[in-house]
């Protein structure tokens, strides 16, 4: 028996919004530590890694490890039927070929359940080692979303250059060029609003705007985003999900022709 109940059901709605444009299907791997999902987008340029810890749920039971392959469009359709304040419960029997989503309104007056067929997905998993990055940048997630949106008007790719002075986002295209520089916040009143840079070595890498824009669909999950970069390895864009886990996106840098 698998059962995961979340009073803050809107978290699951936001998680689906954060992955459904990038992934068409994915496997939710559930064990007694929680729910994990790892999947590459169709073109294998980026990778999504989601972790929701068991202790972040209001009730969590997983008697046997189960892997539930799901069509994410279908999951998104179902979760759209949940109210923002609803409690969401996912449950499945051992060896089941369906999963059930139960939504309860705050006053318990409306209870809905949606049963969805599971899929057998034979997807590759990649081993991502713990890595020390040359630069990590923490900044408001809404600011990062704004920068990605603004710069993608200028070109298909964006250069992110991090030095100890700050971080510069640049794009160049037919209409011209754009540069946005963010300095490290001098004094931090509210950590959520700060730009904080930790740098061992300066790094400059180029990424596809389209994917960065997909990643910013996670903005509502966290007020802050963390970018981690080292030369010649994928960028990590991480949104922490309060008290329950995180979603990380990995994006391979563009290599100059």
């Amino acid at each position: 028996m698998f059962e995961a109940r979340l009073l803050r059901g809107s978290i699951l709605k936001k998680v689906l919004e954060a992955i459904k444009d990038l992934l068409t299907q994915a496997t939710f791997d559930c064990d007694d530590s929680g729910i994990q999902l790892q999947a590459m987008d169709n073109s294998h340029v980026s990778l999504v890694s989601l972790q929701l810890r068991a202790d972040g749920f209001d009730k969590y039971r997983c008697d046997r490890n189960i892997s539930m392959g799901m069509n994410l469009n279908s999951v998104a359709k179902i979760l759209k039927c949940a109210g923002d304040k609803d409690t969401v419960t996912m449950k499945a029997q051992d060896n089941a070929d369906t999963v059930t989503f139960v939504f309860e309104s705050p006053n318990q007056e409306k209870v809905s359940d949606y049963e969805m067929k599971l899929m057998n997905l034979d997807l590759e998993h990649l081993g991502i080692p713990e890595t020390e990055y040359s630069c990590t940048i923490r900044m408001p997630s809404a600011e990062f979303a704004r920068i990605c949106r603004d710069l993608s008007q200028f070109g298909d790719s964006m250069v992110i250059a991090c030095t100890k002075e700050g971080v510069k986002f640049s794009a160049t295209g037919e209409i011209g060029s754009a540069n946005i520089k963010l300095a490290q916040t001098a004094s931090v009143d509210k950590e959520e609003e700060a730009v904080i840079i930790e740098m061992d070595e300066p790094v400059t890498l180029t990424f596809a705007c389209q994917y960065l824009n997909y990643f910013t669909k996670a903005t509502s999950l966290s007020p802050q985003v963390q970018l981690s970069m080292s030369a010649d390895v994928p960028l990590v864009v991480e949104y922490r999900i309060q008290d329950i886990g995180h979603i990380r996106y990995y994006l391979a840098p563009k290599i100059e022709d």
């Binding site: 590459m40 073109s43 294998h44 340029v45 980026s46 990778l47 590759e124 998993h125 990649l126 081993g127 991502i128 080692p129 390895v233 994928p234 990995y250 391979a252």
Partner: peptide
Amino acid sequence: IERQDLMSLYYPKL
């Protein structure tokens, strides 16, 4: 390099 295999260039398949 095939674009298809970009991510698995960086991380080993399990």
